[in-house]
Design a protein around this nucleic acid. Structure first.
Lengths: 338, 338
DNA sequence: CTGAAAGCGCTTACAG
DNA sequence: CTGAAAGCGCTTACAG
């Protein structure tokens, strides 16, 4: 990587002059066209790219506030990321000091390969989302020096913000009970983290307590395609059709909706649906029928992640500390309010 | 902002020692617990936050590749951002050198307030998305020194990647003509950029050429809510009901779908729909009926933006240079393939 | 175990 | 019009 000094040598000028030209201040400093041309030519030939760190070090105003990296596992559903970023952005704005958001996609299970988490030079703090069990193991043992908050994961060493997973499952089961459902099915995602397992368990427990039989518990790819395909298995269960369905994500639920329409099932009369609401709220509301969801307050969770990070940096709190967030049931047409 | 020198003074130690402790290398350098405690205490009291620029300047490996800022207008639909980032990420991976993605939300029309575009110290290059006419005016006159590529906008001074907007409108009209439609309606978004206007014009032109009357051209908020609400106006046009509908975005189309279901309209028998496909592909395919779209190749456009940026930085091309991308018609059930 | 010094690449007074 | 010098905050040999 060529430096200004090298450009200067190449162009037969001083570093100062090169810097002035490259900074677009040639005119105000009265540097003639010819000199500018020599500089630009040198930059082109040597492939000059300014070193931002050096520039920022000179210019404290440019550096701005802190840089926060958001580690987002690439295979996770996109609308979730949008909601999360929206919340994070609001938090940063509210705080007023400004912070840069660095998006760091990573591969689930490969967090250990992200050198920037160890280097301490890449960003001031990190929010790690969607960590797998493997990633969590590595984190526990790596003891990062960096201020870190985990999104929707719990740890012995780091701070985190979590949803009350047991409540998620319980709320859904109770709604079905209130509707006098008799036979429940579960439509789940392939990749399970502990919180997700807890939701399902708790759903099944409460169902049984309330006299609802728990039928097929399907596991499929976490996508609309997966949800749609699973409908066939759902309807062909020899033990009888379920009259209510709990979905792990609204992608699954929206996919199932399509499958059910195609089979001519009347909703919600023949089947009631409640989904974990982790996607776009509008997509839930404008589905046909609109989706009843136990909402995951992702925007709010992002805000809390940011706050936690600030307090961590300020030394006001020390890890581990996990925040529990409440969830609400938002009725839609797929399981109407009573 | 406290520096290491200040911590050193406060703790009665040298900057070297403070740096070693803060870098987590106390153990390997044999620094006693007591000294560490003094350093940490100083950092806590003075609210120390490391200057990343200084660290990176020391440590060339940490700086990594270049930093690319993506300016995304906050009021634009989120799924578009996801698709764009997905493409960008793929491009960065393919290139192999690694690049940091800085997400810079901005308010439509307020791009001029983004100081970082002028400072030259914040990032190496920028992709500006969703610029309004006002933003474009400012850009033209600001003559940014930074390598910039505009997403889906054309400029006299900057490079850009654009979709063939005329073709977008034409493809939709031709499909409707092939289905022997007689009366078209347009469901448009409030905020219009030149390309969008061109799509609509061209759609109307081709419709008329093919003997399709062009009825109501509605303008509404670019959301499912807007699309759903517009259905009423659509169906109550005194001049008669349209038999085909062209939507500016799939959010509008998905919203309209719900409104039409509620009114009991049979799709596609009574009304055919084609939308500009700028959202999540899966959401289009798993809608009921699945959406026919003229697809905007956003991922591919993001890749091209990145390539253009690289060539711009390398001095291989000079602005302005606008790339035209082709679009394809992807039939769905809302306007079936013939 | 701790400190003084050099230097990363850049820009900006300042001198000529 | 151009250049020599200082210094941004940090870390890492090196010396003691």
């Amino acid at each position: 990587m060529a430096t200004i000094k090298e450009l200067a040598a190449y162009a037969g000028l001083s570093p100062s002059t090169v810097s002035i030209v490259l900074g677009g201040k040639a005119e105000e400093r009265g540097i003639p066209q010819a000199t500018c041309a020599r500089v630009l030519e040198a930059a082109r030939v040597l492939g000059y790219r300014p070193n931002l760190s050096a520039r920022r070090l000179r210019d404290p105003k440019a550096g701005g506030g802190m840089t926060i990296a958001v580690f987002w596992a690439e295979d996770f559903r996109a609308p979730m990321m949008v909601r999360f970023l929206r919340g994070l952005r609001r938090a940063i704005e509210t705080q007023g000091k400004g912070a840069e958001l660095l998006i760091h996609p990573y591969t689930c299970g490969k967090l250990r390969e992200e050198r920037s988490l160890i280097s301490l030079s890449a960003f001031n703090a990190a929010i790690i989302c969607n960590a797998s069990a493997e990633d969590l193991d590595w984190l526990e043992q790596a003891r990062l020096m960096l201020p870190v908050v985990l999104y929707n994961r719990q740890s012995r060493r780091y701070c985190g913000v979590q949803v009350d997973d047991a409540r998620v499952g319980a709320l859904a089961a109770e709604q079905f009970a209130a509707h006098h459902c008799r036979r429940a099915a579960v439509l789940g995602a392939d990749s399970v983290f502990p919180g997700m397992a807890l939701r399902r368990e708790r759903f099944a427990d409460i169902c049984r307590q309330r006299g609802i039989a728990v039928g097929p518990q399907l596991s499929t790819e976490n996508s609309m395609a997966g949800g749609c395909a699973a409908v066939e298995a759902l309807l062909s269960d020899p033990a009888g059709r379920p009259d209510c369905l709990f979905c792990d994500s609204d992608a699954l639920a929206l996919g199932a909706l399509r499958g059910l329409h195609r089979r001519g099932i009347r909703l919600p009369e023949e089947l009631k649906i409640i989904s974990v609401g982790n996607g776009d709220r509008e997509a839930q509301q404008y589905a046909w029928p609109s989706l009843s969801v136990v909402s995951i307050p992702m925007e709010q969770m992002a805000v809390e992640c940011f706050q936690l990070l600030l307090r961590l940096i300020a030394g006001e709190i020390a890890p581990p500390l996990t925040l529990q967030m409440e969830t609400d049931y938002l009725p839609g047409e797929s399981c109407p309010a009573l």
